[in-house]
Write a protein that binds this DNA or RNA. Structure first.
Lengths: 241, 241
DNA sequence: CGCGATATTGATATAGATCAACTAATGTGG
DNA sequence: CCACATTAGTTGATCTATATCAATATCGCG
């Protein structure tokens, strides 16, 4: 996994070798971050954006009562906070789920890309648009689905994204989220997530355990979660292969 | 209200006269749409994007059970589906709330802007980024706040946005949403919205009736909804004036 | 004025939260 | 590599916010 995996598996996003090289050259440095580390917080003035190379990050907001809401879950190849380039400030926190490697790209170098490489610039824009599409789907998921549907939808979405970057196959993938984390992603308590995970297993839909997911019946799971993969703009249909 | 109001009231978004003219020239035609009309649906291939001139639109998704989830609420000056320019397809429905006037900008003319006007192009990008920030806040609202908090947050957000485009002052603004619509925006039933609206009134926080909102106690309402206006990137503080 | 859409209110049901105890994993230092 | 500590997962009992169902009232428009 390297910067060439930016937008990997996404439709309409072919990077030329030159562009991959330009992105590569824009990287100031690569850092490793330990699991659970907070990378930045709401209100911070950022001067670089973060391309996730390996491991998993998330974005979240804290509520007054101490609970938090995950806003997104990031897989390698995701530009995690590219939106801070236009806005300069960040309106949520970013943290590591697992240990991770990130490539830091200074905003000043993005300025140069904007001027010199309109096509690459348009792909950067495109990637923030995909991000927004994810957010919309999360609004739908949390606002309209029940607990079973929410988990089902989340598991389907994450499988599609993992598969697109080569980290999932045959319905299986690594998912180092605790049941607490899953609850924060879906607007549920960890206790209830536990019961839902059990029902998914009992009904032969999916097994979620020890940091791994095995989807047993993709068709029924997707139906339960009212999941349509179109919003991910994948190169290949989500379920084949 | 005209295309010059694009990004009105938003920080870091000064349009030069030339740019306003370029945007104006990119408009192919202006249309009026009746209340409740559906403008486009998930999966449609779009060839133009829509700048809202007057009235109110929303984006939404339908669930299997017939309920729908609002994804965003649009005030004049908003580019409602600019994200369909990079993606070509749209991953949700767009509909009118009230009667509205929209300016249609063909994607082909956006191509020209991308090449000839990098600064204006970056503002288009910026506006889609603001959109995503709204979505994130909606995820938080629906995922972590209770019914009172959700309504409170929605009313605060909408007030700030309306005021930024000159359609709200002194805590008052027009909001032609039914209680059913409010429920679809906040993940609640219309019956429960009704009870929450009453409690907001009884507790001296806000009056929501007959298509208008009067915020009675902005400080307490914002606290109840855990509302921080930073994510709107407004020129002026949300509450003054 | 009258009719359909919206809003209001009450009674009841339920999904999911909360609280509390226990078990199973995972990790750490000796 | 074991003993212990810590974290994560599991299960049951109970509670509560919000949904659901149903009936009436009010609004806004033709």
């Amino acid at each position: 996994m390297h910067t060439k995996d930016f937008l990997r598996g996404r439709r309409r996003s072919e990077l030329s070798e030159e562009e991959v090289a330009a992105l590569e050259a824009a990287v100031e440095r690569v850092e490793t971050v330990p699991a659970r580390k907070v990378l930045c917080q709401r209100g911070d003035r950022l001067h670089h954006s973060t391309l996730l190379v390996s491991g998993f990050l998330c974005r979240y907001m804290d509520a007054r009562d101490g609970y938090r809401q995950l806003l997104s879950y990031h897989v390698p190849g995701d530009f995690v906070d590219l939106h801070s380039y236009p806005t300069r400030y960040i309106d949520h926190d970013v943290g590591a789920i697992s240990g991770a490697t990130v490539a830091l790209i200074p905003h000043s170098r993005l300025d140069a890309i904007m001027i010199e490489r309109p096509h690459l610039a348009s792909l950067l824009w495109f990637s923030t648009i995909l991000d927004a599409a994810l957010h919309r789907e999360w609004v739908f998921r949390i606002g309209r689905l029940d607990a079973m549907g929410r988990l089902a939808h989340f598991l389907c979405e994450t499988y599609c994204r993992m598969k697109a970057v080569g980290l999932g196959q045959d319905g299986e993938y690594e998912l180092p989220l605790t049941q607490q984390d899953l609850g924060e992603a879906t607007g549920l308590t960890s206790v209830h997530v536990n019961r839902v995970v059990r029902r998914l297993r009992e009904e032969g839909l999916a097994i979620v355990a020890r940091g791994r997911v095995q989807i047993l019946d993709v068709t029924r799971l997707a139906r339960l979660g009212e999941f349509e993969a179109d919003y991910l703009y994948l190169d290949h249909g989500p379920w084949q292969g």
